[in-house]
């Protein structure tokens, strides 16, 4: 049992601490047991399976998807400069879109605009493509991060250390589709449109042979009836 680092619990005596933990556990237990039981009895489809790995040097990884959470000091005036960039681009950043491993990015200012929380969900390990960013979109990377105190520049040999030093591992993190990458999602969307087109053409084909008819019927059974989302 590790001692809490919460300063509000600094004066707690050992017996008090034990009583508090026992009480908390008793309160949480019924719900925890239910969650654990459900996880055990469910026969998991590997398509939905998450994991609790490390995303390379820092951050958590679930299946193919990883999280990066970082807190850093903002240079004086940096928050306003960044807000102007976000306003101008409406949050839509060309270059960031072409990266195609980014599910989302979030920039949150706090402590009177002196600090920033940066949080993103992305595919794979965090530093895999960082060298590619440094040669393909150095301008965008530096535009976004030059307002952070100490940012060494995307092409600096120190940039990986800088990011890792500011990262905080998430303690809890949930991913709905841990096996699905951004690239997969785009392919599924393309497939959806192409499939609709294909089904329309198939419907119009009156001279279908029995094997094709059978294959189409199986396809419809697989995709054309509502199914609850199981995590």
């Amino acid at each position: 049992m590790t001692k809490s680092i919460d300063p509000r619990l600094a004066d707690e005596s050992k017996p008090e601490e034990i009583r508090r933990r026992a009480r908390e556990l008793a309160e949480d237990l019924p719900q925890l047991a239910k969650i654990a039981l459900e996880a055990m009895i469910r026969d998991h489809n590997p398509d939905y399976k998450g994991t609790a790995n490390k995303a390379g040097r820092a951050g958590m990884q679930s299946g193919n998807v990883s999280e990066l959470t970082a807190i850093a000091k903002v240079k004086p005036g940096g928050a306003d400069r960044l807000r102007r960039i976000f306003d101008l681009t409406n949050g839509n950043m060309d270059g960031a879109q072409r990266v195609s491993t980014l599910h989302d990015m979030r920039f949150v200012f706090f402590d009177d605009d002196t600090q920033i929380l940066f949080a993103t969900t992305y595919d794979g390990d965090w530093d895999t493509y960082i060298n590619d960013f440094a040669t393909k979109i150095p301008g965008l990377m530096d535009l976004l991060f030059a307002n952070i105190e100490g940012w060494p520049g995307i092409d600096s040999p120190e940039v990986k250390d800088f990011i890792a030093d500011h990262q905080i591992d998430a303690s809890g993190w949930f991913v709905a589709n841990p096996q699905v990458t951004v690239v997969d999602t785009r392919r599924y969307q393309r497939m959806e449109h192409a499939l609709e087109d294909f089904l329309e053409k198939s419907r119009a084909n009156a001279d279908m042979d029995p094997a094709t008819r059978q294959a189409l019927d199986e396809l419809s059974t697989a995709i054309a009836q509502p199914e609850g989302v199981d995590y």
């Binding site: 270059g95 072409r98 990266v99 195609s100 491993t101 493509y129 060298n131 590619d132 960013f133 040669t135 393909k136 979109i137 690239v183 785009r186």
Partner: peptide, 9 residues
């Protein structure tokens, strides 16, 4: 390629 990559590096 699907992902922004620099084949020269």
């Amino acid at each position: 390629l699907t992902i922004l990559s620099d084949v020269n590096i």
